[in-house]
Design a protein around this nucleic acid. Structure first.
Lengths: 342, 342
DNA sequence: CTGAAAGCGCTTACAG
DNA sequence: CTGAAAGCGCTTACAG
């Protein structure tokens, strides 16, 4: 019975059992210091550690080393289907490297974000990944001041001197617009996401810029307060109240597009016959919806994995200058878009 | 400049600044011990702590107190839409109580589960919530031996002497079957989930028991290896290969039902006109699918919240005997079920 | 290669 | 009400 009980076995118990100093046990059990200990002792330490059911107390180790092998992740809301794959990408990269990941939701609340960051700091996390950054983000600013290592994912701040993994939004929007233009749409509207998020902002900017280049009407934009279904619904109605001669709408993300579809149907129209609608992100199950949503797919899992690798490098200490990595989106044509009927 | 820099400010810095002992600072800052310190000192400590930008080192505090105010959560896969709301329910309950939650994925792998549990133990977590339990679960058994406090959520182990928040599966299955029987179905099949999970097992058992009571054929069951879309697809084909005179199929969960629908369509049939199909769990967006899936809704968020409360009580120490709390499912009729056409 | 000591930043009996 | 000391379980210079 390698009795694992409340009275936890420590490095001292192992040392005592063997008649060596506990520092020797510590060294024998440490991959880096092991080489300084004679092979026989290492062997003996390992076997009795195992026999006694020794498990290191990471708290003690962290306290001493002033690093915790823990990393914090801030997401707006775990329940938004965009984020679970990002988080898994992060976990699947960080955990094999020996890190524990702590996730917290901010619900788009700056104070909650700041508080979550502080709690994580209290736990001496080795780094932070933000999926929540606003273009001007006090929590991120604080981390810069702190010299806390961090990586932004999906969204970036306005300043360019931070690590970030983002999407080439310009390309994403161009893919969508090319698709719609090819289908014969010339009056295209945009339900833009929140402008304090780089995603909402960049997509809206790319939208009007590219339409201008293509010599098409480029000011049919309604701004949503949040990336939600209900905001998509509201925005579509607001849009149509102002101007109703468009035939396609580009959702700032999938949820806005879904809300838009709801509003279109409530108004007695159909998708795609009356309005073509596109999403952005390609959250799960869109292919099963009615109509299956045409959208832009982004590599969420890989973004998470890349963000984690980047953070690992930053923690590793090789103090490279910050890099912003843009990943490529892909067009996914499904059933919510069709030829313009005008 | 309350310069928060790498050289973190400690309780000793605050003490020095004030000319008191650091133990006094510790007491003044502790809600429980504060009463033993004179109000003026408390006030002074608080203000200079704030001024110096003091933040407690939770690692040190935890090490000393032998509790970490951290809780572990084990889920099969964050990416399965069933789990995010459960986790949010847990977080929203635990975080306001001062706990940090650490989530890990097990991918239905017993070794990964055990390892994740051990890592969490190394971090001196105060308790554990399992959304991954199998009916006979070595990781759970280990926690019982350890006297680690834990709560099971969604699934339970066979033994009944553990805390658990589960669904009244019997009721859920009866709701589904009553609905189908009312629609005139008399030959109803079941794509059962894995039998080593209490959910898969209980639902299958309730299925055949209730049909027997209703004097209907009750042995049309195919067992899926996992709760996935592809397994649902495979299982439906296997089922139809053996016996093809049924008109409705009860999916062991929503994903199995979706796979089942895929298989039905591939075979050239339609839902619900040829086969009625039901799900279980009511994951998000089912109402937007084509056809919108008839299913049983379970209160995922509340289950998480309840599990967290229960764990909080267990940690609180009032050593109550274990309780198994069954929550009520609700029938959600949508478009994947219709009158039997035979 | 190994030991003895000091210390990471807290908390908490024990005195007074 | 406050101080001084000890200690949580590790790690790591410093000696030898």
């Amino acid at each position: 019975m390698s009795s694992v009980r409340k009275g936890k076995v420590t490095i001292r118990d192992v040392a005592e059992e063997l008649g060596v100093h506990h520092s020797t046990v510590s060294r024998a059990l440490s991959p880096e210091k092991r080489s300084k200990i004679s092979p026989e002792v290492v062997k003996k330490v390992e076997s009795t550690a195992k026999r006694l059911g020794y498990f290191p107390n990471l708290l003690a180790s962290s306290l001493k080393q002033n690093r915790s092998f823990a990393v914090g992740v801030l997401v707006p809301d775990l329940t938004n289907p965009l984020f679970p794959p990002i988080i898994r990408g992060i976990q699947d990269t960080l955990e094999p490297a020996g890190f524990t990941v702590i996730t917290a939701n901010t619900d788009h609340d700056e104070d909650k974000a700041f508080e979550a960051m502080q709690i994580m700091q209290s736990r001496s996390i080795d780094g932070l990944i933000f999926a929540t950054a606003r273009r001007d983000d006090p929590t991120v600013e604080q981390c810069i001041r702190n010299e806390t290592r961090f990586v932004l994912v999906n969204r970036k701040v306005d300043r360019d001197d931070t690590n970030a993994i983002i999407i080439d939004e310009d390309l994403g929007i161009r893919l969508v617009l090319d698709h719609l233009i090819e289908l014969g749409h010339s009056r295209i509207a945009h339900i833009a996401g929140p402008q304090d998020a780089s995603t909402g902002f960049e997509r809206a900017r790319s939208f009007s810029e590219y339409l201008r280049i293509r010599n098409l009407q480029h000011d049919l934009i309604e701004y949503a307060e949040k990336f939600t279904v209900t905001e998509g619904q509201r925005a579509f109605n607001a849009l149509r109240a102002k101007q109703d001669n468009f035939t396609a709408v580009v959702g700032g993300n999938d949820l806005l597009a879904l809300g838009c579809i709801d509003a279109i149907r409530e108004a007695g129209f159909a998708v795609p016959s009356d309005y073509s609608v596109t999403g952005y992100d390609d959250i799960p199950f869109l292919d099963r919806m009615s109509p299956a949503l045409t959208t832009v797919s982004i590599p969420t899992y890989e973004m998470g994995a890349q963000a984690a690798s980047m953070l690992l490098e930053a923690i590793g200490g090789t103090n490279k200058s910050p890099v912003i990595l843009k990943m490529q989106p892909k067009m996914i044509v499904r059933d919510s878009t069709a030829a313009a009927n005008n």
